[in-house]
Amino acid sequence: MKPPAFQYLRPNTVSEALDMLAAAGEDAKILAGGQSLVPMLNFRLLKPSALIDINRIGELDFISESETGLRIGALTRHRVTQTSPLIAKHFPVLTAAMDHVAHLAIRNRGTIGGSLSHADPAAELPLLMTLLDAKIRLASRNGSRELSPAEFFQGSLMTALEEGEILTEVELPYLPANTRWGFEEFAQRSGDFAIVAAAVTATLSGEKCDACRIAVIGGEMPIRVPEAEDALAGIVPTAEHIKTAATIASEAAEWNEDLHASRDFRKQLVQTLVARALTAALSPSRPVH
């Protein structure tokens, strides 16, 4: 239960971090909040040659409005994301989801960049990035690039991050006016990883749903379900339409199967939670974002 020996490096800027990462080679790991990485080290599931501690890089710790969206720096702690007035104003669905992320002491330390780079298939932040069409920005010594969530998340604990790259920020494009939302999660205990969670948005004109987004975790990685989204677009959705969309969502992936929940149970949870999230989003009592 003790970490293996490693070289410890503490850069003060992104540029220093990228140089260190390039010099340290493929065995090096970035240490952000450490809430997933350090347990893995303590169990000796990983033996990195070097840890590059980015906790003192102030330029990665920000939340700011740009013209096109809200930018969130990679080092933003979960507690800050959960309580940010800017996030509550533009993306209340993200604020709601953050209440389900781990526990107080973990949220005080864990970061958005760490959670996305770790890519746990049951984590809320990858789900929300998938829902909100986040632009995920990566930097390396060769420059920077921007990926969509579908490009970035490649499987359970697998991302498109290449050797020498660091996730630096995400930008969440602003939602259209009159967009409502829903978020539902089933976990064994408060703060546990989700067995299944569903997040949706619905952009309305009066009672008509112009467009909606449906994102789900419960499988290998977060997914959107375009077929279910199409089933609700351009109509005034009734309970029957919601049920149809939820059924389509439940058939959209091969859900995980483990000690905590069978594949069939997860499938039923997807159907139930997507229907609940859509019902909440389409309810007139839910304030517009």
């Binding site: 239960m1 450490g34 809430q35 350090v38 347990p39 303590n42 507690r79 002491a105 973990i106 330390r109």
Partner: peptide
Amino acid sequence: CEHGVCGACTIIADGHSIRSCLMF
């Protein structure tokens, strides 16, 4: 537990509670 699950090692760092087993 020494992997961040049990909370026994929680201390306060710069005003916020943290797991001391998940920090070097």
